[in-house]
Design a protein around this nucleic acid. Structure first.
Lengths: 208, 208
DNA sequence: TTTTAAGGTGAACAAATGATCACCTTAGCA
DNA sequence: TGCTAAGGTGATCATTTGTTCACCTTAAAA
């Protein structure tokens, strides 16, 4: 995601940095005079020239009015993704219950459609490089192809397994020899909640 | 992350929503008159009263000056993290060269201090659940404890391995029996770039 | 040597903006 | 019945803000 065309001078980069900082800290852009103060510039015409340069080089958008500086549209935005605790009846992505938290995810790491995050318990998917405590990114859908890693609900339990077929019957296959396959019995309460399409492992440090 | 104290009236929620929308689309907050226009209000005093109510109820921060509305500090923010290609001399976190991309990461998944993302090549850390194509989150520092997973540069090559000691000498240990340990020879060009403190695996779907 | 771009100073000025005051309407509540 | 909160109208006014123009300095390029 390249934003720039030409490269910035040191001074221009300093000013752009201050604008970003101001927006981050206060929630809105600075005025020309506020920029002049912080940069130790006495006349605001100099500031104006810098802004013109930043606009020309594609790092800033200016519109009419006070503080009408847009430096954020050119930065990556994010999508808030809910972290669900238990996954129960219905597609629960928009439900407030069971929502433990909301994490911002970069859109380039998201598929289209409804998604949610789920914290993995246990190491039954160890061989698929999914560990206890990892967050899996789940695309909410009721169907899945054979071979996909799915989040499924079976007999009231929510689990992350690989979906396989054996002798014409669906099974939920772990990726760890210490665990047993879970056959999907004829009359069992079985439902696919979604497919695992990403993985996040924060605070990995200290594991060994 | 609860932001509100008291609940908003319908009108107040409408106005707050417009403010958020304006910031999202244009990068800066609206003026009182811009709010009045969109809300079909003729006098700005009415807008002022609504803003006062939003401030009182904890949904907005106001400061002196035009467009000085901060509605974003009360929403989850993100931190832009650079994705580096090659990791070469110096701490390159702020260098524009080698920067392939910038990804927004939720601060709750970040440690303090300078970090960057690095795409993993090869499956030498397979047993540590780090696969080819994964992005590792690296805390940039020049030292690491034994047992930590590190990004290190040795003889011009950048690699992700576990840092171990064997017979009083450092080694870079893979987590895959198919790979050999890399001993750190006395006079070799060896440098620790950082420690792996997180992992991201987008577009996992389709792997089996 | 001249030219050009980056960076800066200073001042005048029109437009945009928020503050403030007085007054109005409606609905719920005591 | 009177009171109060939410919501609104209209107008005045001081301040802030961006625009514009003329001119200066310095260093690199032609």
């Amino acid at each position: 995601m390249e934003t720039s065309g030409e490269t910035l001078t040191t001074r221009q980069a300093e000013i752009l940095h201050f604008i970003h900082l101001h927006i981050e800290q206060l929630g809105y852009p600075p005025t020309l005079r506020e920029i002049a103060n912080k940069m130790d510039i006495r006349g605001i015409s100099a500031v104006r020239k810098h802004l013109d340069a930043l606009v020309r080089k594609g790092h800033l958008i200016r519109r009419k009015g006070a503080r009408a500086l847009d430096a954020e549209s050119l930065l990556p935005s994010t999508v808030p993704v809910p972290v669900l605790g238990r996954v129960v009846a219905g597609i629960p992505v928009n439900a407030t219950e069971n929502r433990l938290d909301t994490i911002a995810i970069d859109p380039s790491w998201l598929p289209s459609g409804p998604v949610f995050l789920l914290r993995v318990k246990g190491d039954s998917m160890k061989q698929a490089a999914i560990l206890d405590g990892d967050y899996v990114l789940v695309r909410a859908k009721e169907t899945a192809e054979e071979g996909a890693i799915v989040v499924a609900e079976i007999d009231g339990e929510t689990t992350v397994k690989r979906l396989r077929k054996k002798g014409g019957r669906l099974i939920l296959a772990p990726e760890n020899p210490d665990y047993n396959e879970i056959p999907v019995a004829e009359g069992s309460a079985f439902r696919i909640v979604g497919t695992v399409c990403g993985l996040f492992r924060p605070s990995l440090e200290g594991s060994h």
